[in-house]
């Protein structure tokens, strides 16, 4: 929490603008974690978008004559179902590919909701100080006192487990980090000279916040955003695992683990495959976030 870097503050005029983008790109290319993370995320995203074209089978088509076929590297596996089939005889690889859609949509959707709420609150608190600051700090305290998992489960159980409900529930429960980080970042920037200059030039408060302040806090904003996407994906998987997230027969990785759980003692692959993919996606997002933090922080750690 306190390890957030100082915002990427470059006062116009003080730093030569020429080549700033190139330096950033060169730093990014030299950062293995960032490149690996980005590569994996792009690959998974492409698979999710092109799911209808690359999935070998219909992810919903049940074939009770072909239940629990092991993956191709086990005895009895075949290339017809490279990753085997689930207890309903559905192709595991196809469900995995379609499941990526669910994880990414919920991850980015919940992050967007949280970003909108948290950034608004954080920037207002940091910029105005005084009672808006106290009010926001108080609301953050209330939010932190609510147990995320339990409240999310209660809401999904009572309202129903649709994608929209899950995105809004997670978004409404996850904005606190955005608020805290944006508040600190805004506090550090609001007294800098270019902000005073814009104010002196007669900028309205709204314009000042949108055109002077926000562009200068994008570094920490992106870092928090990646962390929150990862967090939302993990929470969705946990909700679905407990049976109170995405509802069957929609393929969600958490749900696949839950459905395979009773078969795991004799067929460990049935939980290992969706679990590993989930782990790799979240790991890549975290690597990307750490990488962006390293690359955009002023010290430019090597």
């Amino acid at each position: 929490m306190s390890s957030m870097p100082a915002p990427h503050a470059e006062a116009p005029g003080a730093v030569p603008r020429i080549g700033a983008g190139r330096i950033l790109r060169r730093r990014a290319l030299a950062h293995p974690g960032l490149m690996i993370g980005m590569g994996v995320i792009v690959a998974i995203a492409i698979a999710a978008v092109l799911a209808p074209f690359i999935a070998p089978h219909d992810p919903y088509a049940q074939d009770l004559g072909a239940r629990l076929i092991p993956p191709v590297w086990h005895d009895g596996g075949s290339w017809t179902n490279p990753l085997g089939t689930d207890p309903f005889g559905r192709d595991y690889l196809s469900r995995l590919i379609y499941g990526a859609r669910i994880s990414l949509i919920i991850g980015f959707g919940a992050m967007a909701v949280a970003l909108a709420i948290g950034t608004t609150m954080g920037v207002l608190a940091g910029y105005f100080g005084g009672w808006p600051d106290l009010a926001v700090t108080f609301v953050v305290n209330v939010r932190l006192a609510l147990p995320t998992m339990l409240v999310a489960l209660v809401v999904v159980a009572l309202v129903g487990g649709s994608l929209t409900v899950i995105i809004w529930t997670l978004g409404l429960l996850m904005w606190d980090r955005f608020a805290v980080v944006m508040r600190t970042a805004t506090l550090q920037i609001r007294n800098q000279e270019f902000v005073s200059a814009a104010r002196a030039a007669g900028c309205s408060t709204a314009r000042l916040l949108l055109t002077e302040l926000l562009p200068n806090v994008t570094g920490p904003l992106i870092v928090v955003a990646t962390l929150e996407v990862a967090q939302a994906i993990l929470l969705e998987a946990a909700l679905s695992f407990l049976g109170l997230g995405v509802q069957p027969p929609v393929p969600s990785w958490g749900l696949m683990i839950s459905e395979g759980k009773s078969h795991m003692f004799f067929r460990p692959w049935i939980i290992a495959i969706p679990g590993t993919v989930l782990f790799i996606l979240v790991l890549s997002i975290n690597l990307l976030g750490d990488g962006i933090r390293d690359v955009t922080s002023p010290e430019g750690r090597s």
Partner: peptide, 11 residues
């Protein structure tokens, strides 16, 4: 930080 705790528990 990337390992889901329900999956880790099952493993």
């Amino acid at each position: 930080q990337a390992l889901p705790n329900f999956f880790f528990g099952l493993m």
